[in-house]
């Protein structure tokens, strides 16, 4: 029967390249980034990742996103073809000071991670009314 295992930490796994002195292969998730009046939204594709295996870290102006894909695989599997050779996602973003990194809202659905970073309220654009006399 299939059993759950963490592919990245099992060098013997058939779908992984053999472990060597080279650093572990890291997948850089594709990202969409957009900004509106309230803040910035990042969306990243991290298929296979679950909430429990997701780490978000903010250090000054750096946002580190790490996730681990967990895929159920039979133990006796042999690789025939592989586009994906790691289960470790990692990507770092530089934030800017007008963003309120303490208020990041993160959600994960079907392998898509959405991060919403609001702007500090004092820097949100204000509409300026033009008075006519």
């Amino acid at each position: 029967m299939a059993e759950t295992k963490e592919v990245a930490t099992r060098p013997a796994d058939a779908l992984q390249p053999a472990q060597s002195a080279r650093p572990e292969v890291v997948l850089r998730p594709a990202a969409d980034i957009f900004e509106d009046d309230e803040g910035i939204t990042l969306q990243l594709d991290v298929p296979g990742a679950s909430k429990e295996r997701l780490t978000l870290q903010v250090n000054r102006d750096r946002l580190d996103v790490e996730a681990e894909a967990r895929i159920e695989m039979p133990t006796d599997i042999e690789a025939l073809y592989a586009d994906v050779r790691s289960t470790h996602y990692q990507r770092t973003f530089a934030l800017s000071s007008e963003l309120d990194a303490d208020k990041i809202d993160a959600s994960l659905k079907d392998g898509v991670l959405t991060l919403r970073i609001p702007k500090r309220s004092e820097v949100r654009p204000r509409r300026i009314e033009v008075r006519t006399s």
């Binding site: 298929p47 894909a69 039979p74 599997i77 042999e78 690789a79 073809y81 079907d110």
Partner: peptide, 18 residues
């Protein structure tokens, strides 16, 4: 996608988020 084989089955994994 990744494709693997066991003695009984072929396993195909497509990494297709969202």
């Amino acid at each position: 996608l990744n494709v693997g084989a066991t003695p009984d089955r072929f396993e195909v994994y497509l990494f297709a988020a969202g």
